[in-house]
Design a protein around this nucleic acid. Structure first.
Lengths: 386, 386
DNA sequence: AAAACTTTGTTTAACCAATATACAAAGTCG
DNA sequence: CGACTTTGTATATTGGTTAAACAAAGTTTT
C-alpha cells in the first residue's frame, strides 16, 4: 500500500522539517524558522510547543534584538537521549556513546580473537551493556544502537555475507534487539562511514558523496541526494570487486583484476620487492622513516586507487569523495599519485566540481555514522518529493 | 525554501497517486482504487471527479459485478493531449508523436549531414512542426517535447558536452522553448532510453534498472528507486569511460583502457584481424552469413561487455540490466560470451536476483523515453518519503 | 521620558481536505 | 420477490494550516 496524504501526514512533515531545521542551525528563533521554512508563525509556535513537550527542543534564553522584542532562542536538545554507535572490525570491536547530535560521550574498545558468532556476539553485548551503564540520565535513555559491519547487509539487518568474518546470513539486528529491546540499525561499514563523514566530517551541504573505505579490502558508501543509496537488495557499493585489469590477478570473488587486489592491503601480497612490513601502521612508520620500498608501495597503490576512483567518478559523478579506512592514514604517500591519476584520467566536466579529500573523522567515521543512523531512526524524517 | 505541508499538498499527493494508479492499471473502479491506495471512497470520488473535469480520466462503461452493483470502469484519458519524443543521433534525427501513455501515433525521420547548431536546430524545428501539424485535435494539444541527445546535459537543458556532435554548452531547451512555447525536456540519450525501457519495455515493476546503450560509445542510464539518477550536476552514467585495463589503449578522453574502446563500435579499430565490414549492420549481416572474423569480433566484444557489466553490477546492484543501442542488434553473437563472463565474475549474492536482457524497444527506446519524460512533466508527480 | 515604531510570539476565527457514517443506487442469488 | 452485496454519493466531524488581529517586549525618535 502506498503512502497517502492526510492531516496527520502534513503535521509529520512540518514537525520533521522544524526539528531538523533547529538541529542543523542552532541559535534560531520561532520567527526565523517561520521565514526559513515558509511555515506560518502560528504553525511554528504550535509545533515547537509539542517538540518542547517531547523534550526535543529547549528554549535557551534570548538573542539580540534589531529594533523590537528579543527573540527566544531554541536549541535542539541533543541530550534528550543517547545512542550507541559500534564498528565491528576483523580484529577489533569499537563503540561510542553519543548524544542525539553525534557528540561522543564515551568510547570503548576491545580486541577480537576469533570470529565465531557466539564469541563476537558476547563481546558486542558486553560492550553495549557497559556503555548503557555509563549513559548519563536522560529523558529517553539510550534510544538506538547502530552497528557498522564489514559485509553486505539487507534491509532487515541480516548480515548476508561477510567474507573476512566468515559470516553468512547472520540475523544480527534480531539477535541484538532481543537482548536489549532497543531499536538496532545494522549497516555496511562503508555506508555508516559515509553517513559519518556527510554529517560530521567534510560533507556539510554535500548532496552526492562517495566514501571509499580502504583497508583489508575496499568498500564504498554512496550518498545520493543526501540519502544513502543501498541498491536493490541493500548491498550496492561493493566497488572493491570492480575489475580494473581485464586479465589481471585472480580474486577470491571469482573474478580477476579486482580493484582491491591493487589498492587495498591485499596489494601487499603482490608487491614486486620485499616490503619491510606487511601491516599498514608499521609500513606507514617505515615510509615516514624514509624506507624506499614502503614509499614505492604506497605510490603504486595510490596510482591504482586513482584508477578506481576515476571509474567511480564517471559512473556516479559525486561532488565529494572522501577516502577513509586504515589506509587513509597513509595519505602522505598515497595522495600525490592518486590525485595525478584522477586529474589525468577523468572527463573534463567531472573535474570542475569534484573534490577528493581524506577522512577527517579517521577511524571513527564508521561508528559515529552508525550512531547517527540510530539517532535519525529515533527522530524520524518525513518529507516530500515533487 | 523547503517543501512544507498543507492541505493543498495533501490534495496534490492523493490526486497524483490516483491518477498514476489509474494510468498504470486500466479497468479500475473507484472502489478498487480506494482499496489499493488506502484512501477513503469519498476522497477517491471527489478527486476522480476533478480529474474527469480536467479531461484526464474517463468513465468507460461498467465492469462485472460479483454480487452487487456493477463498478464504473475508469480509464486514463491518454488522448487528452500529445507529446513529442525525439532522438538526436550523430547521423540521423528521429521522432515520434505519442499520446500521454506513450502510444506512438506518428513517426518521423531525417538524415543529418552536418552537426553545426543552426543546421541541426533547423532540422529539429522542421520535424517538430511537422509532427505538431499531424497531431490529432485533443483537449490540451501538444503538451511537451522531450529530446534525447548523445552527450551530457545539465538540469537547465543545456547540452554541456557532446563530443560526437562537437557541441559545447548549447542551450537546447531554451532555443526550442522559444520557438514553440511548449515545455521542453532535454536528457541524455541513455537516460531517456532507460526511462523508455522502464515504462514500456522490460522494466515493469523494476525499481533499480541499468540501461546500457552500446553504439559508437557506451552510455548508461541509471534508474534508482524508480527514478532517474542524474548525479550531482546532471551527468552521471558516463560509464563508457570506466577503465577496465589499467594500462590499456589510450582513449580520446585522456584516460587509458576505457570500456567503450573494447565493447562499443570503437572496438572495430582494435580488431586483431581485418573485418569484412566496419559498420555494425553490415557486420551483423556477415556474422549471420557465417563469417568467422565477424563472429569472433562480436564474441570478443561480448566478453568485454560482460566485464564492464560486472563492474556496474558490483557498484549499483540493479535488478535488471537492459542492453540497448545499435549494438544490441548483434545480440545473437554477443550474448553467450557476455552472460558467461558475468556469471563467472559477479559476487554470488548479486547473481541471485539479477537479470540481463536486451532491449525490447530497440532503436526506439530513447525517443519513446524522451516523450514519456515530457508526458510525466505535464502530469506532475508528487509523493512522500518516510 | 514619552511617543512612535519594530519585532516576536500567541490567540482567534476561518478554511479546507480527509474521514467515518449513513444512505441511495444498482446489482446478484436463492 | 425478498435478502444480501457492492458501488458510489451525501453529510457532519475532525484536525491541521493560515491570515489577521493582538499582546508583549524591545528600540528609536522627538
Amino acid at each position: 500500500m502506498k503512502v497517502t496524504g492526510d492531516q496527520a501526514l502534513v503535521k509529520k512533515i512540518n514537525k520533521s522539517l522544524i526539528l531538523h531545521t533547529i538541529r542543523k542551525h542552532p541559535e534560531l528563533s520561532r520567527a526565523r524558522i517561520s521565514e526559513m521554512t515558509g511555515l506560518n508563525k502560528a504553525t511554528v509556535s504550535n509545533l515547537v510547543a509539542e517538540l518542547q513537550e517531547e523534550q526535543l527542543v529547549l528554549e535557551v534564553g534570548t538573542g539580540e534584538s534589531s529594533g523590537g522584542r528579543k527573540p527566544l532562542i531554541l536549541h535542539f536538545h541533543a541530550m534528550a537521549g543517547c545512542v550507541i554507535g559500534m564498528e565491528l572490525r576483523v580484529k577489533q570491536l569499537t563503540a561510542v556513546l553519543c548524544d542525539l547530535n553525534g557528540k561522543v560521550l564515551h568510547e570503548a574498545e576491545a580486541p577480537l580473537q576469533q570470529h565465531d558468532l557466539p564469541y563476537v556476539l558476547e563481546n558486542m553485548k558486553t560492550m553495549i551493556s557497559g556503555l548503557i551503564a555509563k549513559a548519563p540520565p536522560t529523558h529517553y535513555g539510550v534510544v538506538g544502537i547502530g552497528v557498522g559491519v564489514p559485509g553486505m547487509v539487507d534491509e532487515d539487518g541480516v548480515v548476508l555475507f561477510a567474507p573476512n568474518l566468515a559470516w553468512e546470513k547472520v540475523e544480527l539486528r534480531k539477535l541484538l534487539e532481543e537482548s536489549f529491546s532497543i531499536p538496532v540499525i545494522i549497516d555496511n561499514e562503508a555506508n555508516s562511514g559515509a553517513l559519518g563523514e556527510l554529517n560530521f566530517g567534510r560533507g556539510e551541504d554535500v548532496r552526492h558523496l562517495l566514501y571509499v573505505s580502504a583497508g583489508s579490502g575496499i568498500g564504498s558508501g554512496i550518498i545520493i541526494g543526501g540519502e544513502l543509496y543501498k541498491g536493490s537488495r541493500g548491498y550496492a557499493g561493493e566497488t572493491g570487486h570492480m575489475c580494473i585489469e581485464a586479465e589481471g590477478t585472480p580474486c577470491s570473488c571469482g573474478s580477476r583484476g579486482c580493484w582491491e587486489l591493487y589498492a587495498s592491503e591485499k596489494a601487499y601480497d603482490l608487491a614486486a620487492v620485499e616490503l619491510p612490513a606487511y601491516q599498514t601502521p608499521e609500513l606507514i612508520r617505515f615510509a615516514a622513516e624514509g624506507n624506499a620500498a614502503a614509499r614505492q608501495q604506497f605510490a603504486v597503490m595510490g596510482t591504482y586507487l586513482g584508477i578506481g576512483l576515476t571509474n567511480l567518478i564517471n559512473g556516479f559523478n559525486p561532488e565529494l569523495i572522501v577516502i577513509g579506512g586504515p589506509l587513509s592514514e597513509a595519505r602522505t604517500w598515497l595522495e600525490e599519485q592518486m590525485q595525478q591519476v584522477v586529474a589525468r584520467r577523468t572527463l573534463p566536466y567531472h573535474k570542475q566540481q569534484l573534490e577528493i579529500a581524506f577522512s577527517t573523522l579517521g577511524s571513527r567515521a564508521t561508528m559515529i555514522g552508525a550512531g547517527f543512523s540510530a539517532a535519525m531512526h529515533f527522530l524520524g524524517h518525513t518529507r516530500v518529493m515533487v
